[in-house]
């Protein structure tokens, strides 16, 4: 299938970025691990902040259409 010809991602990974910008992949993976470890405390924090009556909150969020 012609669509399968896109080998771009593989090629891209091998190429070093010419300009500094996004975090390189290894660090991104490390970041992701750190984020995963943090998630329990994130969920606890969200529990504290989230509207207590979710059903009523959702029902009450009614908007008029705009553009």
């Amino acid at each position: 299938m012609p669509g399968q010809e896109h080998s771009r991602p593989q090629r891209r990974e091998d190429e070093p970025d010419e300009v500094p910008g996004p975090t390189p992949a290894p660090e991104a993976a490390a970041d992701k691990e750190a984020l995963d470890e943090d998630i329990d405390s994130v969920l606890d924090e969200i529990d504290d902040v989230l509207e207590s009556n979710a059903e009523e909150f959702v029902r009450g969020f009614v908007q008029k259409g705009g553009q």
């Binding site: 991602p9 891209r12 990974e13 970025d17 010419e18 300009v19 500094p20 910008g21 996004p22 992949a25 991104a28 970041d31 992701k32 984020l35």
Partner: peptide
């Protein structure tokens, strides 16, 4: 120019990771 270079670099980086696993873009 730097603005164009930044967008191109971000663009290719995000596409590469979206293709591998979208969750790799969780911070962006």
């Amino acid at each position: 120019d730097p603005d164009t270079a930044e967008v191109m670099s971000r663009w290719s980086s995000v596409l590469t990771r979206l293709e591998r696993d979208p969750m790799e873009c969780v911070r962006e």
